[in-house]
């Protein structure tokens, strides 16, 4: 398995290099202008100077390799230095990937935003899994029961109603009418004591639930389908014939086998946590990675968008590998040798 993982990682390097080039080229070729959002009162000559100061005057290839060096070598070194406190080489003058809009290092922006994204989106994912697995199990075990019908209906809603609608609906109900929950997420809030913890829970509640509903609908359907596949298998009948308790039959035999595909689905979904939830973050102003990306796109902040999309690409490649390895660990029928 270790050799397999190593081989896959080695293959990932040229793949990622190709992706980095495609991302860079696509974003670079797309018609956009970092000065487009500035007021028209700023005269064109000044705009041209701004563009030049952003390094747009250099040829494409030069910019690509600069970015590659900054992203692949300089930024990891910086992260290393920050963690360890060492000084490696000339760290003062090392060029970093700078965002055009903020003129600050892109990685610092990302690091600043990761906590809220991981808290809100990550928590919603955890909640989604915690809700979805039991619902899927019960729905399948009691197929066509009232519970299953209601579960199907709710997951249908979660699937088909976009998060901007559920988000807005929740805000109107819980913030405007009832006034129970804040509609705007305070990213500066620090949990110090019980009261501030309660406030944190309150402000996380709506965005987390909106996302959890969407995710849970999906995962619970996977879980249900996978359970149904397994429930009708002969080995379940075997387990019953052995005289095992029903709980053991369902939880040990059926659930374990049914979880194999679901776990890989869940693992493949993890990169989307880091990607944030563009719409939900925007609605509740969680201002995490998703909102950073959308601002970058709107403001033609190309280095920011390039870096973010490339990080997503890395995460997707890595979690694909992880999903494969998990599959191999869970299912003895699959061996990577």
């Amino acid at each position: 398995m270790a050799r397999y993982a190593l081989r896959r990682l080695l293959i990932a390097i040229p793949t990622l290099l190709a992706i980095s080039f495609i991302i860079f080229a696509l974003l670079d070729l797309a018609p956009s202008d970092p000065t487009a959002n500035l007021p028209l009162t700023i005269p064109p000559e000044v705009r041209e100077k701004i563009r030049l100061s952003l390094g747009l005057g250099e040829p494409f290839v030069v910019r690509y390799f600069k970015w590659l060096e900054q992203f692949m070598i300089n930024e990891p070194l910086n992260v290393l230095e920050q963690w360890t406190g060492w000084t490696i080489g000339d760290s003062e003058n090392r060029l970093r990937v700078l965002s055009w809009a903020t003129r600050s290092p892109v990685t610092d922006l990302i690091v600043e935003r990761l906590p809220q994204t991981l808290w809100v989106v990550g928590m919603s994912y955890v909640i989604a899994v915690l809700i979805a697995v039991p619902i899927g199990v019960i729905s399948a075990y009691r197929q066509y029961s009232l519970f299953d019908q209601i579960g199907t209906f709710i997951s249908m809603l979660g699937f088909s109603i976009p998060t901007f609608f559920t988000g807005l609906l929740l805000i109107v109900i819980f913030s405007v009418w009832l006034g129970w929950l804040p509609s705007i997420y305070d990213t500066t809030h620090v949990v110090r004591d019980w009261d501030s913890f309660v406030f944190q829970v309150k402000q996380m509640l709506m965005p987390t639930m909106v996302l959890a509903l969407a995710n849970a609908s999906q995962i619970s359907r996977f879980m249900r389908a996978s359970m149904l596949d397994n429930l009708n298998q002969d080995y379940v009948r075997t387990a019953r014939a052995k005289g095992l308790r029903e709980r053991v039959v369902v939880l040990v035999h059926v659930l374990r086998n049914s979880l194999i595909p679901v776990v890989t689905v869940i693992a493949l979904g993890v990169p989307t946590i880091f990607g944030g939830a563009i719409i939900t973050e925007q609605i509740f102003r969680v201002n995490g990675i998703g909102q950073l990306l959308i601002i970058g796109i709107e403001g033609a902040d190309i280095p920011l968008v390039q870096t973010l999309t490339f990080i997503f690409a890395i995460l997707i490649v890595v979690f694909n590998l992880i999903a494969d390895l998990i599959y191999g660990m869970l299912d003895p029928r699959i061996r990577y040798d």
Binding site: Q233, D234, R237, T238
Partner: peptide, 13 residues
């Protein structure tokens, strides 16, 4: 009971 399909009747994991 002994089942028809010796493949499906044994828990693969």
């Amino acid at each position: 009971m002994i089942f028809q399909d010796p493949h499906a009747s044994l828990n693969p994991r």
